[in-house]
């Protein structure tokens, strides 16, 4: 099989201007990946499938990953003018201080594809795509017209992560019921409060029991917590 750099340059040669970025993988598995710009992803996917040498005819695995937004505190050097008394005289002095700034790195939803070739018996090659954010711009192009195996897996990602695949022939929830509103595999999903007593409670369970009792209160709930 060609190395990942060669595949990248093959894609760039075949589709001029395609946004392909190499993402190295530091783990011993050495499965590096290519991040595609969603705009040309379908084009690139078709090239990978139909190119005689690459022939990635088998899309094995489609995965969703949630990367929530992170609040990063960093120190920024700021130059400002302050008034100070120097030698008994009030003067305007410029000084540089380090000031903590909070910055929110926007989160995104990522979809990862693992491709193999049944004809050439090589693989895997890992492709990834990212949405703009996690709330309103969550569209990604569907590869189901190219590899049918993505059909249910993309539906699952739509269900559990909320990525909307444009061009998918039948985009409905796969696992949860119709009318369910949440995307439970997202990391900020809150479980429904159906907590009850657990005989061998861990700390997290005890914390949840306390929260449950506080939220419901009343005599009827007496004794439901594990921590009593």
């Amino acid at each position: 099989m060609k190395s990942i750099e060669e595949i990248k340059s093959a894609i760039e040669a075949a589709i001029p201007g395609a946004g392909v970025e190499l993402i190295p993988n530091p783990s011993p598995s050495g499965q590096h990946s290519l991040r595609l710009a969603p705009a040309d992803a379908v084009e690139v996917a078709r090239f990978l499938r139909d190119d005689a040498e690459l022939a990635f005819d088998f899309l094995s695995n489609v995965t969703g990953v949630d990367w929530p937004g992170k609040e990063i505190t960093e120190k920024v050097k700021v130059t400002r003018t302050v008034t100070r008394i120097v030698d008994g005289v009030e003067q305007q002095v410029e000084e540089t201080v380090e000031e903590p700034r909070k910055r929110v790195e926007p989160g995104c939803l990522e979809v990862v594809y693992h491709l193999f070739s049944m004809a050439k018996k090589h693989g895997p090659i890992v492709l990834r795509m990212r949405t703009v954010n996690r709330t309103d711009q969550v569209e990604l192009p569907s590869v189901t017209p190219i590899w049918r195996s993505a059909e249910f897996q993309e539906r699952e990602i739509f269900d559990l992560y909320g990525v909307v695949f444009t061009g998918h022939p039948d985009l409905r929830r796969l696992l949860m019921w119709k009318g369910f509103k949440d995307h439970p595999m997202r990391r900020d999903y809150v479980d429904p409060d159906d907590f009850e007593y657990e005989p061998t409670a861990h700390d997290s369970v005890l914390a949840r029991a306390a929260a449950h009792k506080a939220a419901i209160g009343g005599v009827a709930q007496k004794g439901t917590g594990a921590g009593e």
């Binding site: 783990s27 598995s29 995965t63 990953v65």
Partner: peptide, 30 residues
């Protein structure tokens, strides 16, 4: 260590694969 891996075997029903992303913590990130 942080990184990711996809491992697969020929299970009796077909290709059974596990895809793991580690962020260096004790639990898998994905």
């Amino acid at each position: 260590k942080p990184g990711e891996a996809y491992g697969r075997i020929e299970a009796p029903k077909g290709e059974l694969g596990f895809y793991l992303i580690s962020d260096g913590g004790p639990n898998p990130y994905r």
